[in-house]
Design a protein around this nucleic acid. Sequence first.
DNA 1: CTATCCCGCCATATA
DNA 2: TATATGGCGGGATAG
Length: 399
Amino acid sequence: MTSLPPPFLESGYRHHTYSRKQKSLGLLCSKFVSLYDRDDVESVSLDDAARRLGVERRRIYDIVNVLESVGVLARNAKNRYSWIGFSGIPKALFELKEEALKEMSGTDSPCVKVLEDEEDDRSSDQNGDFADYKLSPASMDAASSLCSAACRARSVTDKRREKSLGLLTQNFVKLFLTTDAEMVSLDEAARLLLGDGCDSSQMRNNNAAKVRRLYDIANVLSSINLLEKTQQLDTRKPALRWLGTKGKPRADNDVAVAITPSTKQRSKRAFGTDITNADYKRSKLNPPADKKPSKARLRTDDSKECNLMGQTQLQNSKGGYVFGPFQPDGVSKGSGDVEEKGGNKLQDWESLASSFRPQYHNQALSELFGHYMEAWKLWYVEVAQGSRKLQQPCKSVIN
DNA sequence: CTATCCCGCCATATA
DNA sequence: TATATGGCGGGATAG
């Protein structure tokens, strides 16, 4: 009753201008954010959100799932989330990265191919070693990707979790956090997000499904300005550019530390995600046919004061390699059972940094990581400390 | 035509 | 069981 079918809306039909854009996940997410990103908000009710935004609950789940993956929200209970805000992003990203690094350090893959896949599903995900970043272009490692079947014993529950939007989002983000590449073609991302390997079989259709999910993720992350939908400069192919890590482009000096948005707890618009009812939606350059998209769009993001910190733009051999595989399948609880978020995380950045560093074979990466640690530390400390009262969740998380 | 991706059915999870 | 979640992919719209 509350929902109106697409074609025909409420009052008459005066608005033949039905446009999907008006109901895009991204726009909805923007509304969602502006609705809750206030100092006095600390709890979010899905029911309330759905009602206030005038959409079906299903859509709220989509938004909330990805936002939670990047630390903007935290689940409390049924129908209940606590609003962390943008200040929670740095921490979340840091943890994601930490997790990603841990996973790829070859120590994983405890689960080899156990037995053949049962029923339908294909052996999803790949993982395996991360020895070198450059995996052979094609053919890759169809064989190695066979594994992962393992964890199936974990019952259906984990199985479902494996394909959740939230996990997909995390893996997607990890991809950007563990490499200096900032742009991935949609297609490539879709492939990496799951068991690529063999491109044969009827994975064609499967891939299409994944892409659909990728669009969902991209849309909400875009509205948060962590991501940007673009297209590869050469190939006009659609691609996604990560914005969550770069500082302002104009910083020549490698420094360009964080632009800590809220020195004071005041500015809740950490990420400058202000949505005006007007659709400020950037029109995607997309000129006629051969125009250079380059400067087409002006100040892409009105100086999102957000951005964690400046990072040197040492974009070296980006073109060469591909991202190593990470471990998608229900890893989280895979190995341990007691770990999870209980332990002592983010203890010493110092030690973490030093312990991680040696893992890089690539000098540039190593250096880059150093910057990451530095900047993150700064940012995190500042935000965590200064953040208004709603920092309680953070505090408790640490235990 | 292909790229996007909204919509909501219905399987699962949870209270 | 009822309700809450959220895969999943058909098929409509944008380009």
